[in-house]
């Protein structure tokens, strides 16, 4: 069985630092990592390959330095890797990103299963998986937390829902988006990592022309949504101690919560 895994390079937002003066996000020096959910996607793919044979192919769209996550993917057991990289791809929304990825996948052609992470920790949209599935016109299963069985015709998965779960049988080919409950990702294997680093491992780099897309269809130009502005929510902490009787401090606190820009403010 040939499996494509979509991996994204993301800034490590769990270690985010804010400028103490302005309260703005400090983007410089943020370490780049493989999106956490994608580690689970790779682990699942390599496990299936171990049982059924075939190849695992990692695909990423991003700047040249995104080869790092592909190298890591090879260290974890991917056999091949593809980097879709072109200045024209930058500034893409999920429409343009999913289009670019699906054109790359169509060029690879030979696949039975696509696995991607549920959500990236930077863009946070969880839209890429379903959109890629629709471009390719294949079935999808999201929020997958267990893969029960898989063969050439059908895969049976468990999906985590708000109040329980669902067991779903899908006709192949299919795209899964997986959540971290699915498995424990392995550490990259030293030898595999070294061989990947030595460029012996085949990481192909494809630009817009290679995958047959026009530059106006991708990146910022090909996007349907545009960011109009970004701002940092105010994180500065006042460190204020509220004073008065128990009754007074509590009503003072409730007042402040009511005036806060939080989603529960209106319910108080």
């Amino acid at each position: 069985m040939n499996i494509i895994v979509l991996v994204k390079q993301v800034p490590n937002t769990t270690n985010i630092k804010l400028d103490p003066k302005t309260g703005n996000l400090i983007r410089e020096g943020l370490e780049s990592i493989m999106n956490p959910d994608d580690l689970h996607a790779l682990e699942a793919a390599v496990k299936i390959k171990d049982k059924t044979g075939g190849k695992v192919m990692a695909v990423s769209m991003g700047p040249p330095q995104a080869v790092d996550v592909l190298t890591q993917a090879m260290g974890m057991g991917a056999d091949k890797a593809f980097l879709l990289s072109d200045r024209a791809f930058s500034g893409a929304d999920t429409w343009a990103t999913s289009y670019t990825l699906s054109k790359g996948i169509e060029k690879i052609k030979d696949y039975d299963l696509i696995i991607c992470g549920h959500q990236a920790i930077d863009g946070d949209t969880a839209q890429i998986g379903p959109q890629v599935a629709d471009w390719l016109d294949i079935a999808q299963a999201t929020y997958v937390n267990d893969i029960e069985s898989v063969d050439e015709n059908e895969i049976v998965v468990k999906r985590r829902l708000e109040h329980g779960f669902e067991r779903l049988a899908c006709k192949m080919p299919v795209l899964l988006t997986v959540i971290s409950e699915l498995n424990e990702p392995r550490y990259p294997h030293m030898e595999q990592l070294i061989s990947a680093c030595e460029q012996k491992a085949p990481i192909k780099v494809w630009n817009a022309a290679d995958i047959g897309v026009k530059t106006i269809e991708v990146g910022l130009e090909g996007s349907n949504t545009h960011v109009i502005k970004t701002f940092t929510p105010n994180f500065k902490r006042q460190n204020e101690l509220l004073e008065g009787s128990n009754k007074e401090v509590v009503s003072d606190l409730i007042d402040r919560l009511k005036k806060s820009d939080t989603t529960i403010a209106y319910r108080l």
């Binding site: 999920t94 429409w95 949209t125 839209q127 599935a133 629709d134 999808q140 999201t142 996007s223 349907n224």
Partner: peptide
């Protein structure tokens, strides 16, 4: 932005050829 909505909305947006903004507040 429920489990159902987040499964369905991206697929619909692609199908009808439009953009989608996730998880708005």
């Amino acid at each position: 932005a429920t489990a159902l909505g987040r499964d369905l909305a991206p697929r619909v947006s692609r199908r009808v050829g439009t953009g989608l903004t996730a998880d708005c507040t």
